[in-house]
Write a protein that binds this DNA or RNA. Structure first.
Lengths: 233, 233
DNA sequence: CGCCTCGTAGTGGTCGGACCACTTGACTGG
DNA sequence: CCAGTCAAGTGGTCCGACCACTACGAGGCG
């Protein structure tokens, strides 16, 4: 009997597909521990080095998690785990690509905010207000940034779609850094952001999806237009 | 003088960040060739094995491309390259997560189709029609699937946002497989899909964004509801 | 008896070196 | 001048050793 696999691509690639298949077919459950690297390598008939590369690859994808001294585990396979690399995309994108990313964010964020307006609970709304207040109470850029992110994350989460929230999270990191620059270059940006955030909050409190959608779209579109102008000029 | 980096996490992780930084800072241009693995390893003071893991990690992220016998190159860093892992997310998602992914797809696809209706050229519209005709001319599931994918890809591309098109591409692979199952289980699904595609095409030809948005949303929502029902029952 | 400490086996993390498979380009012979 | 050949260099794979850390149980202490 042959080994079955007649060499497709590199051995490492084959190992990656193999492990992915195990998970996709349910042979490996989220949170479950995998065999040791040494055994996995032996089982697939490859060296430990190659197997390690495969594990590393799946680790950066957020599929596996290696704990030093303990073992290799399947992650919870939740949206946040798998979409972590999405942030890298945002970090490495430049110029026109960044505008495209912002456009995607505008579409998703406006919809998410609209959904949130319809579904948000009083508790979550209070959390949103807390971040809004904290954001207005300080003038430390770093702190503002943190609460700004949390503000939007809370809203996206309230929309009831964790996958969408995770994607928006990834789309934000780079974006918000750009906004910091902007704050330095263009006076009044902070004040405008404050007004826009207030408008979003008002729409949420009023449970008005359409107003929320419009406010969120305007908020992101604001940055988008500014960036577009930067590239054109 | 110290080496500067006081050991943050694993050496491999450090190497990954290092290379990513090189690209983010523009020290490495898209398409450019990197130093050899051996030299990179020596430059960061780590072993070649560890460096190889770093390169492998960046390779699966679509940032680098290793050509056997030739060297390591930075990819074009286009949306398609970086968002390839997005398909993995779709492949590994199950149950409620899949519904969430479809919801994201519905939002993006409907908007993309609306944009396409406003911007599509006659040439691209002809290409869309070609896939539509090919899809209706055969009854081989595999071929239908291929043209179905191409149909939507063409539309997403016509929307003028390659990033969005790439994301939609990733969101589709798994989705469409589910639809194949569906075709087997539920008679009339093909006919309904055919009607929905026709409606989308009609809206595109009429350059009617709102109609296009509605048709696309209904198209994806159809699958979404079916899947939701599957999970509930 | 119960808790705490310490040792130890086992795991992932790193290393160095050897060899293989493939690409590339210069060199050689026609 | 061209085609074929060959050698240097690159990524791909493998091996075996050792390090760093974790987990868990044996043993000691209270």
């Amino acid at each position: 009997m042959d080994e079955g696999a007649p060499q497709k691509g590199t051995v490492t690639q084959r190992a990656i597909e193999e492990i992915k298949a195990m998970i996709a077919e349910g042979r490996l459950e989220p949170g479950q521990r995998l065999p040791t690297e040494r055994e996995l390598a032996a089982r697939l008939g490859i060296s430990r080095s190659s197997m390690r590369e495969a594990v590393r690859a799946l680790t950066v994808m957020g599929v596996l998690e290696a704990r030093h001294g303990s073992g290799i585990y399947v992650t919870a396979l939740e949206a946040g785990d798998l979409l972590e690399t999405f942030g890298v995309v945002a970090d490495l994108s430049r110029g026109p690509r960044l505008v495209e990313l912002l456009e995607v964010r505008r579409i998703l964020e406006s919809t998410a905010t609209a959904l949130a307006a319809a579904r948000i609970t009083d508790d979550r709304l209070a959390a949103v207000e807390k971040h809004l207040a904290a954001m207005n109470a300080t003038d430390d850029p770093e702190e503002i940034l943190a609460h700004d992110l949390a503000f939007h994350r809370e809203i996206a989460s309230a929309a009831g779609n964790e996958t969408m929230a995770a994607i928006l999270d990834g789309l934000s990191s780079r974006t918000f850094r750009a906004r910091v620059w902007r704050g330095y270059q263009e006076e009044g940006a902070f004040a405008r952001t404050r007004r826009e955030h207030a408008a979003i909050h008002r729409a949420l409190a009023a449970r008005d999806p359409e107003a929320a959608r419009a406010a969120a779209a305007a908020h992101v579109g604001e940055v988008e237009e500014w960036l577009r102008a930067q590239l054109g000029g």
